[in-house]
Design a binder for these strands. Structure first.
Lengths: 220, 220
DNA sequence: AGTCGCGCTGAATCCTGGTTCATTTCTAGC
DNA sequence: GCTAGAAATGAACCAGGATTCAGCGCGACT
């Protein structure tokens, strides 16, 4: 008995796993899922290709972890925006504006969630990730409806509609001449206005809600 | 000079090109772009793999033709729905309902347009195809605005929003328990209502418009 | 019928990228 | 320092799928 996984080693191992996952996420966000190749990721993480397989038994596992990480990151951002809002309706607005702004500023992560993975076995997971994000909007809608701030309606389809609307607005090349932070905020507010109107919030009310959402933080 | 491309031969050649393209489109619509493989397409078209290369110099060309064909097919369906409508606003509603219904009934074609092709060189084309579809909605919006039937607004972002909204509603697994034609129509109308509200059409008016759109034809 | 040129064939080739594994390097305990 | 076992390495391997090409057979003209 000459080698034992001491605390120090475990830390290093966990850290390395993090490095790999981070490298994969960055690669995906920057160049798309197709660019997530074992050798490329390994290189970016500063290790050899074979080492990746000590942490992820197969590429599909790596991609699965990557999708979950991105989804959780985005969902977390929405949740924290929601919890910071003063009321249910402004929480919904905050969720919408936050997601729109983030996605416009950096479309990569969300694009990954919408991109069709090659692996058949990942379709289900990817759908779940999408659903998780849509679920955040749905929860916000439910709360607003419960409080009587939003017309009663089928939240499933409404949340999906909001999600699709925001993503398309963020992705559309037409809006791609967004030069600086101010332009992002402008475009995001425009899209948010449309989303809120779709859910039955009057224009004037929607504008008021949107303006007071704080600027989403850069990270997380 | 013992062989010349007679009329008959030219016809056969053109027909064969059509066969290949059709086979590719069907494969893509049924099993996704990843399933569009030269051998598979050739087999489906009833020819040998090598023959495909007499009509499409490279796979990317085939996929490009495929994307254009699908986009044109969808755009055409929207256009004919628009031109059959009695007025600008009902034309917009017709465009929306038609696209929603078609996509819910057969999500394949539209999914192909939204799926990331592996080839870097196809990104631009795919974007153009998307834009072409969005453009149909934009044109309908412009006409409605010009006629004073729709609040004045930025049509680019509005059209993109409508497009994304409809696609997501058609794609979302939540709505996937659509059993029959009636269910499709129901879901499509629901999504259309959200889309029209997003553009500032009041709920009551929107409902009235949607109901009177004729059932989209199965083909084309 | 004979000949020519073209289109078709499909097995062989090439390329890309995931996966493996014999070897090397490192860590913990003696 | 020395040894046993774990982790890392990276070149070799392999599979899937695009592409090529030498040979075959048909249609068109004489």
């Amino acid at each position: 008995m000459a080698y034992r996984r001491t605390e120090r080693v475990l830390e290093r191992l966990a850290g390395r796993r993090e490095d790999i996952l981070r490298a994969a996420c960055e690669t995906a966000a920057e160049h798309g899922l197709a660019a997530v190749q074992i050798v490329a990721v390994a290189e970016r993480a500063g290790i050899a290709a074979g080492t990746v397989y000590r942490y992820f038994p197969t590429k599909a596992d790596l991609v699965a972890a990557l999708l979950k990480a991105i989804a959780e990151q985005e969902a977390g951002a929405i949740r924290s925006a929601v919890s910071a809002a003063p009321g249910p309706l402004s929480a919904l607005a905050a969720a919408i504006v936050t997601f729109a702004t983030r996605t416009m500023r950096r479309p990569g992560p969300v694009n990954v969630l919408l991109t069709e993975p090659v692996e058949r076995e990942l379709h289900g997971l990817r759908r779940d990730c999408r659903r998780a994000l849509v679920g955040e909007f749905e929860a916000a809608m439910r709360a607003a409806i419960a409080g009587g701030h939003l017309p009663d309606q089928e939240t499933g389809i409404g949340a999906a509609a909001v999600f699709g609307l925001l993503v398309e607005c963020a992705t559309d090349p037409l809006a791609s001449d967004r030069a600086g932070p101010a332009a992002y905020r402008q475009a995001a507010q425009e899209a948010a206005l449309l989303a809120l109107r779709a859910l039955g919030v009057g224009e004037a009310r929607a504008r008021g809600l949107i303006v007071q959402v704080p600027w989403p933080a850069e990270t997380a």
